[in-house]
């Protein structure tokens, strides 16, 4: 049996270099996938993941091992995504990503498959909090309770947000059919 993520994280927090490397290797793919779901753009997602990985050594000092490592690190990613989003907003820059999809789709014309187009439409239609919730819960390993912990809201709120997401997705689907 492998060492758990939590133990690796605690070891890394006390300065164990090998533990930190192993932990990164293990979590990188998951972090990137979440970052992509949150941002909807590969370059953004790479930047975000890099920011998080660079900040991790410092952040790890705050990891107490009382939560699952994935929950804890997802919170770091979500917060970092928030920061980026806010900073992008204050610089009044149009964010590349889900919101920008319509423009780039027109430019790139036929490159995207039908399915992806629908995905982007759907994600772009969601407000930030719903999209964050969705991005988290799309990970099979994340329960609603954990998503609630990551986002710092109650479990009920998560359940409500998921149903809201479904409602909106259905509305989009109906619109498409018309």
């Amino acid at each position: 049996m492998d060492v758990s993520d939590e133990d690796l994280a605690l070891a890394a927090a006390t300065g164990d270099r090998a533990a930190f490397a192993a932990l990164l290797e293990r979590t990188y793919a998951r972090l990137f996938a979440l970052a992509f779901r949150l941002t909807g753009d590969r370059a953004e997602a790479e930047d975000l993941t890099q920011d998080v990985c660079i900040a991790l050594p410092r952040k790890l000092a705050g990891f107490r091992g009382d939560a699952r490592f994935s929950t804890w690190v997802y919170r770091v990613v979500v917060n970092a995504a928030h920061d980026r989003r806010r900073r992008a907003a204050t610089r009044a820059k149009a964010s590349a990503g889900w919101g920008d999809w319509e423009v780039s789709r027109l430019a790139a014309n036929n490159e995207a498959t039908e399915n992806e187009a629908w995905l982007h439409d759907a994600m772009a239609a969601l407000p930030d909090d719903l999209r964050d919730t969705l991005a988290l819960t799309l990970d099979d390993a994340v329960t609603q309770a954990e998503a609630a912990e990551v986002l710092g809201v109650s479990e009920g709120t998560i359940a409500w947000r998921i149903s809201e997401v479904k409602k909106r997705l259905r509305a989009i689907a109906e619109e498409d059919q018309i």
């Binding site: 890394a12 990188y28 993941t49 050594p57």
Partner: peptide
């Protein structure tokens, strides 16, 4: 997509560590 800059990111992270 497949992450392209994984190696670079990991190197940066180790440096930061």
């Amino acid at each position: 997509p497949k992450p392209l800059r994984k190696a670079e990111t990991l190197a940066c992270a180790m440096e930061s560590f």
